[in-house]
């Protein structure tokens, strides 16, 4: 009965990231898309929060959005998985519901 949470905002700009992390249940998944990929950057002020969420939830980053912002696999926190749009679709269908933190 797990939920896929999408985050499309940078944590430096809006509260979507922290709100999403505050409403996770173990076994849920978080997918960072659009400007949300900024929140997955390793060594950033928010990396620690995401790393602790990664202990009980799966963290995904939409690779085309990451690439568009000049980043790649080595730029995100350890344990984050990169997916393409097809992977995004799979995450939607394999979770009970999607919660978009806009």
């Amino acid at each position: 009965m797990s939920t896929l949470h999408t985050v499309n905002k940078s944590p430096f700009e809006r509260s979507a990231f922290s709100s999403a992390l505050n409403h996770l249940k173990p076994g849920d998944a978080v997918l960072m898309i659009e400007d949300g990929v900024v929140g997955a950057r390793k060594g950033s002020a928010f990396a620690g929060l995401l790393e602790s969420a990664a202990k009980s939830c799966a963290i995904y980053v939409l690779e085309p959005d990451l690439a568009a912002r000049g980043m790649g696999e080595t730029d995100v926190i350890q344990g984050a998985n990169l997916v393409d749009y097809g992977g995004f679709v799979d995450l939607v269908t394999t979770h009970q519901r999607t919660q978009a933190w806009l």
Binding site: N8, I33, E34, D35, Y85, G86, V89, D90, V92
Partner: peptide
Amino acid sequence: HQASDTAYQFTKAALEKGH
């Protein structure tokens, strides 16, 4: 906003997967 672009890419990918 990127929202419509993302929705379009998502929709296309979902159709390609047979949904």
